[in-house]
Simulated assay, not measured.
Amino acid sequence: MGKKQKKRREIKRKLLHKYRLVILNESTFEEKISFKLSRLNVFVTGTLFIFGLIGLTTLLIAFTPLREYIPGYSSTKLKRQATELTYKTDSLVKALEYTNKYLTNIRMVLRGDVENNQINRDSLFQKFKIDPATVDLSPIREDSLLRAEVALEDKYNLFESDIESSGLIFFSPLSGSISQPYNPRIKHFAVDIVSAKDTPVKAIAAGTVIFSEWTAETGYVIILEHKNGIISVYKHNGALNKSQGDYVKAGEVIASVGNTGQLTTGPHLHFELWNNGNPLNPTDYVDFN
């Protein structure tokens, strides 16, 4: 028993014996850093470091894309491709089943192996076939009235929908006489309103300025975008009061009457009205008197 105790004490003494780790300057032998260590401290620290390194490596492999570069781990791209191939395979199997059923039916028809109680489609078509010559296609009075009502609704549908649903009411941009009316045959998709120079031009409704610049042919031009895809255009202005991106209210002054641009013969306002890319006759929606 004495020898065993003595041996244990010797091992304990060696484990707890202090050592000094010193870092010296090689030229001056000046002591820079020193540590007091024991074998037990070194063993515990090394063990903790190893376990920490193993844990960190495990986390990197488990939760980062690095695992895809380690043999034995499946790649995310390969999983995605495998899933897509599974769906495609299932679709091909169903398509093959439908094709086999179709070919089976074709074979039965070619062999004449058709059940006697099946319906003859040709007889059905012949039974319910209508001769166009026996049908009276002349329009009745109710049909003519309905056509007229629909045409009238189409003409004023924009104006009615604006007032009833969206509350959009068109103000007159300028009061004056119309020198040239709306005429799509000559591609004049506007009305020219004659007025004195520098007369204020107002916005017909609230909207955003999407264009406010000078053009060679039509002078100072300003374009407003309103609700429901409606766009109003004002050309040949003498000056512009708003810039692109500004929000204007209904009836707010946006420009003044002028005689600018090559395509003008006197002070007037060239006013256009568009709905989703289609020109509208402004006189149908705006009172210029």
Rank of each mutant, 00 (worst) to 15 (best):
L96T: 04
L96G: 13
E97L: 04
E97N: 06
Y98N: 13
T99G: 10
T99S: 11
T99R: 12
N100W: 07
N100D: 11
K101Q: 12
L103R: 08
T104C: 02
T104H: 09
N105W: 04
N105I: 03
N105L: 06
I106Q: 08
R107F: 06
R107H: 05
R107A: 07
M108C: 10
M108N: 12
M108S: 12
V109W: 12
L110T: 09
R111E: 13
R111P: 01
R111I: 09
R111V: 08
G112Q: 00
G112N: 00
G112Y: 00
D113F: 00
D113H: 03
V114A: 02
V114W: 00
V114G: 01
V114P: 00
V114L: 11
N116E: 13
N116P: 03
N116A: 12
N116Y: 12
N117T: 15
N117P: 03
N117F: 14
N117A: 13
Q118W: 03
Q118I: 04
Q118R: 06
I119A: 04
N120V: 04
N120P: 00
R121S: 04
R121I: 04
S123W: 08
S123R: 12
S123Q: 12
S123I: 09
L124A: 06
L124C: 05
F125M: 10
F125C: 06
F125P: 00
Q126W: 05
Q126S: 09
Q126N: 08
Q126P: 01
K127L: 10
F128T: 00
F128Q: 03
K129R: 11
K129D: 09
I130L: 15
I130G: 03
D131P: 00
D131A: 02
D131G: 03
D131L: 01
P132F: 04
P132L: 08
A133G: 15
A133P: 01
T134N: 13
T134S: 14
T134K: 14
V135K: 01
V135I: 05
V135H: 00
D136G: 01
D136L: 00
L137D: 07
L137T: 15
L137P: 03
L137H: 14
L137S: 11
L137I: 14
S138L: 06
S138Y: 01
P139G: 02
P139N: 13
P139Y: 04
I140A: 10
I140Y: 09
R141Q: 15
R141M: 14
E142H: 03
E142F: 02
E142T: 08
E142K: 11
E142C: 05
D143P: 03
D143T: 15
S144M: 14
S144P: 10
L145S: 06
L145M: 10
R147C: 07
R147L: 05
A148H: 06
A148K: 08
A148E: 12
A148Y: 10
E149N: 15
E149V: 15
V150H: 02
V150K: 01
V150W: 00
